[in-house]
Design a binder for these strands. Sequence first.
DNA 1: ACCTGAACACCGTTCAAGT
DNA 2: ACCTGAACACCGTTCAAGT
Lengths: 221, 221
Amino acid sequence: MEEQGRRRAGRPRTPLLSRELILDTALRLLDERGEAGAGMREVARELGVRPSALYNHVAGREDLIGGIRELISDRIDVDCFEELPWDEALIRWADSYRAAFAAHPPTIALLATTPLTPDSRTSLMYDAVVRALVRAGWPEERALAVIVAIEAFLLGAALDAAADPDMLDPGPRDDVREFSGAFAARKRALAAAGGGPADEAYRIGIDAIVAGLRAELISGR
Amino acid sequence: MEEQGRRRAGRPRTPLLSRELILDTALRLLDERGEAGAGMREVARELGVRPSALYNHVAGREDLIGGIRELISDRIDVDCFEELPWDEALIRWADSYRAAFAAHPPTIALLATTPLTPDSRTSLMYDAVVRALVRAGWPEERALAVIVAIEAFLLGAALDAAADPDMLDPGPRDDVREFSGAFAARKRALAAAGGGPADEAYRIGIDAIVAGLRAELISGR
DNA sequence: ACCTGAACACCGTTCAAGT
DNA sequence: ACCTGAACACCGTTCAAGT
């Protein structure tokens, strides 16, 4: 990092690294350089240390990614379930969930595909949500499905947000008239209203899901 | 593959490879061995060929993955938009979309994070969906947001389906009573009804989204 | 306990040489 | 045009040696 002179082998008098320092550095590099910046070797280089030194503090790359996930997940708001009606709380929760990951776009693709090792904080979050759903009248055996469905949408929306905004651009061609028209119309509407296509799709989707869930709960299913 | 004797260098009398053969083989290996089986070297080995030989037919790994995506996407049903009301068609489309990827679980994580190079078939699909939505009364500038929202959910649900069914298992602990209870209740309900947790969450989610969209369209919004 | 240094077993990709 | 063979520039990870 700032060290200049070559360090001799052997244990340093005071530790150079810690799990926390490694995770913070990895997340920062991820933000600065994208997915490529989060390798064991890159993190080590940034810390002015040999790659093998990291293994004294993290179990390996998978553990590193899991640690980053926890760092980000800590930003998710679960208090809302104690303060708001279940449907409003669900939206508040989803919004903060999305915001937490949207603050670190390059992490999304990385975290999305790394299976999560269940940690206690995540379980506490699920507990809060389940409690609110059951209290609101959802059958206990269906509560998790509701949560998983919303998380699926959040994950997909986060991946979408991390992608190129012009991803769908059909380009100049005349065999997809309606599609081209809709693409141009969306562009105009977004330019006038502000915000990006991913934000708009997220808002439509989360509102639709929660509205649909509300209707299902009322109708008895 | 079946060849035994070492081939001499130089162009073979009849080509050993083709783009199609390479893509088919890669998809098969992906299914058989998981994400690890789709490397350039693995595909080459399976075809009894040197890795560098593949570059005569595909541009590289990214092109390979893009080709696999197209192979799978061809299974998505878009005819339903000409035959059914928009909301029913949306569900039919989503179901076939999901089924296409669910048939190849290991591909999902791979495809989810590889940015898609817009090909013409995908654009044709979007065109069909936009046409149906606009015909049903959706504002042209909002049609794409509806599609993107549903695709986000599909992508997330597909990732979820590819994950470990017991992923959320809180294990034995007494500080998340409601969560543990819901987990056990879900397990019992699924054992009785059949199907996996991912299927249940998908069904709840897609039905809720489309119900919410239907309500939004009717209410004018 | 916690670092260096050297090694191992992998990747994807390039390119000259051969037919 | 389409393959082999050798190389290059990467990965994550292990482990003995040093303090």
